[in-house]
Nucleic acid binder design. Structure first.
Lengths: 271, 271
DNA sequence: CAGTGGTCTAGACCACATC
DNA sequence: ATGTGGTCTAGACCACTGG
């Protein structure tokens, strides 16, 4: 129950009969925080820390706003604002009347394919089938090492897999994972798992993908890829490079996908 | 000053000496709103309406939270939440100590190129030069008409332009605009304007781009495009189709860009 | 019914910008 | 010093879920 830690409250005495003398707490705040961090941000940080340590598992509910407020000795509104931001980052999910839950890649189709931007040209919903082709242990080359923020030559796992839409092979992915986080990864283990790849990472290795960056380019199909995707050699394909991050902006996946845009496209919303 | 309109407040009497009799206003709320809309959403709607009618111009500040609260007879917190959402949608911009401002495509480089996802491969910031090649009046073909939600055969303007990065032609755009909204558009007028295309639309035609959807595909360069972009015929290019929307989710631009990924890529953030 | 998140209020104070 | 947005509180009530 020593959750309270050392919160620094910038708000002073406030209303009521006024607790005089408390003002000095405020000056302490300024001493400790040269840049000023609002209370709800500090609480957000504490919540993230507890999520990171696995105190609350994906799919589970976290304590209610009232309980957290009591635990941290702040008002419900302050906890609320912290949770609001985490919900905005898709790290928590609010469900009115039920509670606040830790986001997961295992429940609905839309949560399983949250990061998949490939869509049918006709706009209909369709989720792909995934087939893992092979898994290799590889020492990280320089570019992959840089992306994953590990050292060149460190152990990695490299998976190749195909995504099929209605049976048609559409995406060929090469996925590189840092070996240190995915010890014991085998093709058999993955094949035995029901669900998405990120769901697998989450439940089997405790690695949660929170956000990702992608770089899209146009390339010509090489002979190998052409065969897998059943297109002519030289056919224009999308090259989609992704770095996915977990807590603390730590990169935990580097991926390169090659995608036909025969009957699908890469969808994006701009705001 | 008849801004107040007919707000329906779901919150009842509340604290203080309690204004008894006000309870019935609540039941009215339920009669009028079968689906229930929170007060701050209603206020958000009113703000959007005023933005739409041009009461507050891009770049200008809107009234302070306190003034809006008084005008709408709600608390500051309620106005605040309405503004929060509009700021989240990049329709308003908050500046602490200064006020809340209507977003514009004319001020900073980053606001001018808010929707541009093309980035240098080495990660450095770089903004392109734009050259308008030609402007034609065209009757909308079926597919464009569908995208713009106009009728086939309606008048449109079709612009072609090139984006150059450090002198290198990188993107060739074909931009279709509904003629009804852009009367008086000429190449000369555009060439005389300093700034981005959306800045031009905003200041010269009062059309504000708020959000957009893009579909990205890989295609082979046709002879014409190849010449403009200085690549070989058949070189893989990104095809980026965009529909841009203004208030009320009204589509006001259909665009197809062809982009070399020699030294640039299409960047995207996934959350 | 009780419990949870969602809305709303009123008031105080802090941080920032400007005069 | 004043005004603006930003934070925080305390308390009330609404909407939704599930026993």
């Amino acid at each position: 129950m020593s959750d309270v830690a050392t919160l620094v409250n910038p708000a002073i005495g406030s209303s009521a009969k006024s607790v005089s003398g408390v003002h000095d707490a405020a000056s302490l705040a300024h001493v400790g925080t040269p840049s000023f961090q609002p209370l709800y941000q500090q609480i957000k940080g504490l919540l993230v820390k507890q999520l990171e340590t696995g105190e609350w598992q994906p799919g589970e509910s976290i304590p209610s706003e009232m309980e957290l407020a009591a635990r941290f000795s702040v008002s419900q509104g302050t906890v609320r604002k912290a949770i609001d931001e985490l919900a905005g980052e898709n790290i928590l999910i609010r469900r009115q009347g039920k509670g606040t839950f830790v986001a997961t890649h295992t429940e609905t189709k839309s949560s399983m394919f949250r990061f998949l931007r490939v869509r049918r040209n006709d706009g209909q919903d369709e989720y792909p089938e995934s087939e893992l082709l092979d898994v290799k242990r590889v020492r990280a080359p320089a570019d992959v090492a840089r992306a994953l923020e590990i050292s060149t030559g460190d152990a990695t796992m490299v998976l190749r897999r195909v995504l099929r839409y209605g049976g048609m092979p559409t995406v060929l992915d090469e996925i590189t994972l840092p070996g240190a986080l995915f010890k014991g990864f085998t093709k058999e283990r993955f094949d035995a798992y029901e669900g998405s790849m990120y769901g697998f990472f989450e439940t089997e290795f405790g690695v949660r993908m929170l956000r990702a960056q992608e770089q899209v380019r146009a390339v010509a199909a090489d002979p190998n890829t052409a065969e897998v995707l059943r297109v002519g050699i030289g056919t224009p394909l999308l090259s989609v490079e992704r770095i996915a991050y977990t807590y603390g902006d730590k990169p935990v996946e580097f991926r390169r996908g090659l995608c036909t845009t025969r009957s699908h496209h890469y969808a994006n919303e701009l705001n």
